[in-house]
Design a protein around this nucleic acid. Sequence first.
DNA 1: ATAGGGTTAG
Length: 416
Amino acid sequence: MPHKDTVSWNVLISSFLRNKRTRDVLGVFDSMVRDEFGCKPDDVTCLFLLQACADLGALEFGDKVRNYMEENGYGDAIKLCNSLISMYSRCGCLDQAYEVFNRMREKNVVTWSAMISGLAMNGHGRGALEAFRQMGQAGVPPDDQTFTGLLSACSHCGLLDEGMLFFETMTKQYGIKPNIHHYGCIADLMGRVGKLDQAYELIMSMKELKPDSALWRTLLGACRIHHNVTLGETVVGHLVELKAQEAGDYVLLLNIYSSVGDWEKVKDTRRFMKERGIQTSLGCSSIIVKGVVHEFLVDDVSHSRKEEIYTTMDEINKQLKIAGYVADITSELHNLDEEEKGHALSYHSEKLAMAFGILATPPGTTIRIAKNLRTCVDCHEFAKALSWVYNRVVVIRDRNRFHHFREGRCSCDDFW
DNA sequence: ATAGGGTTAG
């Protein structure tokens, strides 16, 4: 192995990150720490590593990088601390993000924005607004990304008036022109509180910016929440026009049809998807116990402890039923009768992961689950009930968002 | 090689 210095390895790590080879990034770091390459990680290496940990939700590894930073004199570097705040937030550990934030003597616009986004992402919308106020008091001017975090906080909490006001003052007071993300937040905010037509008008009124597929999907999600068939179909039309329609969009449309009981259209859409070969991806949830990653798919029977898991699952169902939990079937796509629907939802991947968490960790341990898709309404209710009955904190991370369940409530209650 | 980003997905 020819000698390569730290900079060369950093360049390699950076290309790994760009190409989503995130796990390889962790491997290179371990090798560097073990001095297998004749050079040590520097501040730039750590910065990349924290980004990788955030992408993977690899909390333990993130802690390791933080220890390394502190032992090697990078503990106070502002860029690294800002990245730490983001990493902890994106791992669902708001307490630790806040601890880093609090200890920083110098806070710049990135520091504040990271904290505001972290609060928003973890369901503390009001906290994000409060942080923004403090930021103003501290005399740090916000920028476009600060407002992205702030507006998303408003949409998470359904704070329509506040959100609209921020959207306005952003331009008038701070001279920041809204970008597509800002429009996304506002469309989401309007959509969630049920002002679907207003959200549609906002998107159609965009002049300089062209609505992208993500923006349309935001509105489609709102159509699902409010069971709006007509607008839902219009939005899918826009996605088709952009040639950006994906399997998930048709699933949302299916959900909208089934929520209003239009089984004919459910059938048509299913047929359409089959004819076009539109494949839906499987829900997959993972949980780490004693350093081992356990993955579950829907109705998964491949786990070595499957008998125990299903027995635990049945026991949990029994206990939750006693506590008053009733399966919510609005997410189910099939035209089944209520009892069958209740069964069809029983073994979503996150439920299996939760059952395994109950089974394999000591009482009181926080159950942390990562999911590749969004959690359905029923699993959300299930997790709430479970957090209450079993007295456990449950943290579920879906694609970009965290749900913190504690004592029968979720951090995103009412708006998710 | 150098920080912080919203929304959508059975």
